[in-house]
Design a binder for these strands. Sequence first.
DNA 1: TACGACTTTGTAAGCGGTTACATTCAGCTG
DNA 2: CAGCTGAATGTAACCGCTTACAAAGTCGTA
Lengths: 346, 346
Amino acid sequence: MPTVYDVARLAGVSTATVSRVMRGSDLVRPDTRARVLAVIDEVGFVPDASAQGLSRRRKDIIGLVALERGVDETDIERDGLLFVDQLVHAVEAVLRGTGCSLLLSFGRNGEPFQGRIRALSGKVDGLLVVEDAMPAAQLRALSRRLPVVAIAASPGEGGLDAVRVDNAGGMQALAAHLATGHGYRRLGFAGGPPDAPDAVERLAAFAAAARARPGCTVDVVPGGDFSEASGRTAARVLLSREAVPEAVACANDQMAIGVIRELQRSGIRVPADVAVTGFDNIFPGRVVDPPLTTVGQPFRELGARATTRLLERIAGSEAQPRADVLPTELVIRRSCGCPVTPSPAT
Amino acid sequence: MPTVYDVARLAGVSTATVSRVMRGSDLVRPDTRARVLAVIDEVGFVPDASAQGLSRRRKDIIGLVALERGVDETDIERDGLLFVDQLVHAVEAVLRGTGCSLLLSFGRNGEPFQGRIRALSGKVDGLLVVEDAMPAAQLRALSRRLPVVAIAASPGEGGLDAVRVDNAGGMQALAAHLATGHGYRRLGFAGGPPDAPDAVERLAAFAAAARARPGCTVDVVPGGDFSEASGRTAARVLLSREAVPEAVACANDQMAIGVIRELQRSGIRVPADVAVTGFDNIFPGRVVDPPLTTVGQPFRELGARATTRLLERIAGSEAQPRADVLPTELVIRRSCGCPVTPSPAT
DNA sequence: TACGACTTTGTAAGCGGTTACATTCAGCTG
DNA sequence: CAGCTGAATGTAACCGCTTACAAAGTCGTA
């Protein structure tokens, strides 16, 4: 593994010059530069990022820590991941332009995740924390040591950069559509993990919006985990009730898909007998039958905004911490009872 | 940002002792250890990974480079990613136990991906390369500088650790099922990217296996990109033929889903009029109507095996490079024309 | 009490880059 | 041609941690 010293010796220059050539130039005579570049190319020199990081006090790596949801221990149900996967791609896309790389770390709640985050924090220039992947206190402590941007975290956290989506707005629009648009009165809700801020907000907003309408009731089934399986479970609970709801909203799309499939397995028609809706707008929701009415969230923008902000902080921005809320959008398809949409490729 | 020196001073010991305490002990007297730990905790010391990496010649980071497939420029079609996403989670799960972290880098082909990989190679101890994310020559060069394990790469590459799945076996089983099991004779195939080794193998194996059977023909539509949209396109091509195939196999599940939906849009029943099959066995395939018959590949094992091998190499293993082939498995659901399977939650 | 034989701790030299500062060099000017 | 100036290059300290080796304790024994 060649080092700057090797290159310097071979090119007959000092390490300073090699370094200057590497970092896009400074003042190096063209022929010197050419000579150095030739040697670099010949010996296949690649600077050691550790040494660079140490010397420049900057690692050009940011970390993303997230909870791995809806993946069960046996690894069979691999369907809960779409949200974080989308995010990862969005973040990576932004980083692509910069020299920065993305370090990933997933945890399942209950695990001793904290130690890993600690260690990880030594490897990065800044951290993206998804949901409440760590206790608020620790998050604050962390954010004193390095730039941190929270994604989809609990709104409570002040004094911290954060980006989230408008869960409440989306759910209100959805509740209006179901109650006012379709006239459903007996509503149900398949709730997500109590430790997922998004899930909590969605549940609260939907229930509040629905109950605010005269005659509307909401039968809440809490305790899902964002997975399809937990949607099925919720459906079974709802089916066991005296009065099965006319429409069931869900904490996310996977759960909605689980609800749909479980209902169908029991011979119930969706949406004719029971309407079902999700949240997220991920690919499988377009594919399921009936296509899922849902609230779309701007994954791309969510990841991009958070990443951009983090990079600014790393670059030294001292601006006031901001908590951005990105708009969500009601995506009407058929599972809510709306007629076929004639869109070309939905 | 406290350093070992700060901790040492505060605890009244030398940096060597601090270091010894950090790295799980050596021979440090219990009370000394306690004192040091107290200081570490108090000042919130986290060792700088760059300095550690430099000193220990080991960064405890491995990289994963992959092509981002089936994502179109406008970011609207976000459905081509499931394969690599699965892989990422599988790899991360293995790393979880170790102190190693995962650095991610995606490229789209055509992009100047090579430079980024070069830079990235300075940040990691080893690299996982998915598909032919880089030219064979460069891959060889890379593998001389650091441990590299290829995932789902072209079989050609000798002398390199590689893990792939048995595309051919899976496709042969599928062809047998369609031709012998169902008696289909006019077959179609929606091909994937010509630069995707998996896609090439699947196409070749399916065509060969099918054509080996008396009376069987295969109408190949090449040039897909693994996305649902490209499946739709393939379906349109197939529909324009004089004789529409009785069964269409596809390079992956997303394309199969695209084919199904496009056929349905044209009023063709699946599988009654045309059977359709995929490859991968990802979540959306379970959800689409009809549920997708496909060839399952062991994502988890694929990622795990590659990661384990890479870690061994990093640890210094000098074993002969191996090219493992993991078994695939025919997953019969309904899109091939088989009757409803009574499985509990498929 | 003195002497080994361990155990515990400290000293200081790297690890491979970057960069402030010093030095050299070439080209002008007076 | 000495002296000056700015460009090009070299020197060496430093980034923060690890670790070989040296030094200092500690203890039991002769």
